[in-house]
Design a protein around this nucleic acid. Sequence first.
DNA 1: TTGAAAGCGCTAACAA
DNA 2: TTGTTAGCGCTTTCAA
Lengths: 339, 339
Amino acid sequence: MSRKGPTLEDVARQAGVSRATVSRVVNGIRNVDPGIQELVRHVIEQTGYRPNRAARSLVTQRTETVALIISGAGDTFASRVFTDPFFGRVVSGVVGYLRTHSMHPVLLVAESDAAREQVVDYLSQGTADGALVVSIQVADPLPEMLTAARIPVVLFARPEHPHLASHVDLAHAEGARLAAEHLLVRGCRRIATISAPQSIPAARDRLDGFRATLASAGMPDVPVAEGNFTVDSGAAAMVELLRDHPDVDGVFAANDLMAQGACQVLREQGKRIPQDVAVIGFDDSSVAVTCRPPLTTVRQPVEKMAGAMARLLSEHIQGMHTEPVSVLFDAELVVRDSA
Amino acid sequence: MSRKGPTLEDVARQAGVSRATVSRVVNGIRNVDPGIQELVRHVIEQTGYRPNRAARSLVTQRTETVALIISGAGDTFASRVFTDPFFGRVVSGVVGYLRTHSMHPVLLVAESDAAREQVVDYLSQGTADGALVVSIQVADPLPEMLTAARIPVVLFARPEHPHLASHVDLAHAEGARLAAEHLLVRGCRRIATISAPQSIPAARDRLDGFRATLASAGMPDVPVAEGNFTVDSGAAAMVELLRDHPDVDGVFAANDLMAQGACQVLREQGKRIPQDVAVIGFDDSSVAVTCRPPLTTVRQPVEKMAGAMARLLSEHIQGMHTEPVSVLFDAELVVRDSA
DNA sequence: TTGAAAGCGCTAACAA
DNA sequence: TTGTTAGCGCTTTCAA
């Protein structure tokens, strides 16, 4: 079972040099005689030597690993979040950046207070150089716990107290404006929206941006039904909207899943999309493409944002920032068939 | 920036005992005087001591970390696989097992030969105690590379050479039989299937199992159109099937995504599901629920399988198996509206 | 440009 | 039951 290979010492002995010299060539430090450099490289190649990560970490205090933490609440939380296409895009963006910088993500789930304690504990052991956290929960205590433990942190989405930690976010209100304008240009005049819990900053911004745009177009009263980001809640909201406003001709949902739910209800009630009712979603997640009809939606560049998170964290680890930094991304309207 | 806390030595000094004693209580080893035990615990609590992972790993040769590797081919590979709901279920199952056994997964992507070399290299540094690999690619060389490097490995799905490495898999043929029987019981008599590339063992088994069941029911010639697991390919296959066999009344697709594509085409061509054509998918992935109509499908207990993978790997790491082990899971028919 | 030597923080024989 | 001691494999001053 022993998987131990040759050590630095073995290489040094075989090459007839000191451990320090081998270390230098392994780490690409200059001031090593080219001849010796080649000799050492040869011995390394020949012996199949691989530096031991633990030994190196012990002295450098670096692991080249960062934690990717999904923080939220609820027992079924983990299984739900992992099947959400959003999560996959985050992972993709994070991995995309890290792998080109020889770092690796370790996946952590913190679905309860106990789990959050454990996560902080784990990271306090020096297992990772920093943490990327995606909070599903409002008012997540984890970021502060991590900061208190002096662990570099970068968040996805603006936290309650924006000054607390570095984060990346989307210009949500601007994205909603794009949706509103598109509906207006299409000629929609009886526009409603399916919002999401207003305790979430992003949901608030989307609704505010949408309302503000319509208000300045002379439509101050927008019917609103609130969902909770799921297909079913979107369907329920659409039923409610249709009941109270049967003549609605344009709907903006705060995410694609709810837009999909809305589409299902509309079709079942015999409404043509977009002829009778135009629908716009938010995120440009994978369901936007598989939905019938394919959704016109506000694209959130999740992969890019996740990549930026990783970059930001890497910079923090290197001590490049002394203060929290935030990066804002622009939304973009993707026009497909639903509006 | 220094995040260094107190060390074992500090605790030992403050408690007035030796490092060994502190180590013993930290690791829960018996033979420690209860009084001293309590004293040490108190000092630990008070100083906020946390054992250093690197130092511990250096001597134990264990990291309590396993690699979760997604191996396949293609440049857009990573982004595609991460948005596939299947991947999320695997992650969920793996995390579910590991977290209750104080282990953690580090995510690795191996989309090219170069990347695979890097992965092996990385693991050879002793960064993880073993590897869980999910191959998207047929004839993936990674498992063998890992075994050659003496890294414990467990695979998702049977490899070409089943004796090569431990793996978990589904009884695919049995699952397909379930689908075939359900269609027969429904009264379908002109049954077709949308298969997947036959180079993939699972796809082969599903087709074989489906055909065998229908054959013994007196239907030896089943129309087959091949897709590649995507919605679009499923739609294309359905178009082909409908063109050559307009009177088809039952379709089994080798996965849910293709079944969804088939449903879209059927509805667009005015066929009612399941009255005119019954459709059955495979996997019971999230699209099975969001599809209209919701899909009757063969459930693959991915989370459970992924959990078993993690358990198997853990056992290998502990040296409990000297030979590769394989675990087979039963499929289960989930009846919804499409058939 | 190179080497000697001192740790990094921990575990695990072995003695006591 | 406890302590002493010898490393685990590497990086990094400091001298030479």
